[in-house]
Design a protein around this nucleic acid. Sequence first.
DNA 1: CAGTCCTAATTGTCAGACATTAAAATGTAT
DNA 2: ATACATTTTAATGTCTGACAATTAGGACTG
Lengths: 244, 244
Amino acid sequence: MKNASPKSGDLSADIAAQIRDAIVAGDLRFDERLPSEAELSEQFDVSRPTVREALKRLAAQSLIRTQRGATGGAFVKRLSFEDAYPQQITTSTLLLSMNAVSFETACEARYALERACAPLSAARRTPDQLATMRAEIHRQSQPGLTDEAFCASDVAFHRALVDGAGNPVLSYQLAGAVEAMQPLMNMITFTARDRARIVALHVSVADAVEAHDGPAVAQALTDLEQETQSLAESVFAQRRKHPS
Amino acid sequence: MKNASPKSGDLSADIAAQIRDAIVAGDLRFDERLPSEAELSEQFDVSRPTVREALKRLAAQSLIRTQRGATGGAFVKRLSFEDAYPQQITTSTLLLSMNAVSFETACEARYALERACAPLSAARRTPDQLATMRAEIHRQSQPGLTDEAFCASDVAFHRALVDGAGNPVLSYQLAGAVEAMQPLMNMITFTARDRARIVALHVSVADAVEAHDGPAVAQALTDLEQETQSLAESVFAQRRKHPS
DNA sequence: CAGTCCTAATTGTCAGACATTAAAATGTAT
DNA sequence: ATACATTTTAATGTCTGACAATTAGGACTG
């Protein structure tokens, strides 16, 4: 908490960066209390509003939490997977929607990453996770389901598959890839026959997971990817012919 | 930009959330200008400092950029992969260091994800990316390299492999997994013989990539994972016997 | 027409005040 | 002495008003 001023012309950003670096470097450990806003203003020689803007930046990244009252203040927050999930999903979603990433590219990445989980999930899935997959398959088979509900169930199915690997780091990384696809998937309207094919492939995945057969899971995911890609292609082709 | 107030007791967080939702939902498109701080204070019926704290939160997530001057203001920012990279890396690093994630778990996730890139990278890698991999291998073979420099080169090697897949979404997701491992890898001191084994495996990877042989790349990565895991195990075992 | 100056709009920063909260210290009654 | 109510205090949350810095665009001038 000294000098080393980047002096980029934005005081609150500089201060936030300095404190963030101290946290990442381990100089500030979690649950450790930062100096009060008044003390920080003195140390950095800026006004309290400026310090507050810096602290809000850190709070937005879940790096600190604040508490009011006599023993209150800003505390280094233990960054939990729970907190990181929504951020990861928001960022991934915006990356896809703002950078003209093609459906093809996003889909390829998603299934490549999921296949990475296949052998682990086949080996370790709990009965609970398998039951979740079966339950989502059942939901997807219900007629009269809206396209959105179908997609949401699809996401839940795939998340159960990923969580089956029993590796929180994998689950975290995959959350972004899987959830961020949902807006893209929602652009597709599924016919009854489309759904039947997808559900059948989901059954293949679940069966392979149940049999602890990693390669079969990977193969089923590859088939599912191909089905999804060709489905999207035909939808986009039709949309080019009859633009709304 | 009106009601739907979550009223969580934190005005700037609520306002930030409302604007963020509008951006994610697509109501505000990129490069679109937000109302001025004065106008926002009126619309949300709060003071300007409070609005500013909300805007700083959004800026911390790279959702907006601000410009001074007559035609200035806050603009919705096109979230670029470039901006998202460091955030992803910071978050992943903190998740590992603050949640007692074992070396084993992190390493497993990393190599599982890298194997997902193997077939794509084998098929598509450019000569440039292959050259980068060879160059890093050469650097790693230099005697007298510090452990940190060795690890940094290791990261560069693996990033070239991942980038070889030619899928920006994959590169983005993997950046977190690969870079966040570096602090953990730095805890290991490599003997000359350790390095030689790792470099030999890197050569296997590069050879397989050069030969466009996806399965061989995956196999080499699996070998590399096993080597890394057993190396870490022996280091930690020794540390338990002779704690510093 | 070109260059310069001025103006206006907007963000960046500061100072000081008051409101709100929650823990700790103090006081009081049993 | 202990249990409970009250006061104090230290901190964040918010507001008001002001000034500085920056930048685009218009007005003025040669």
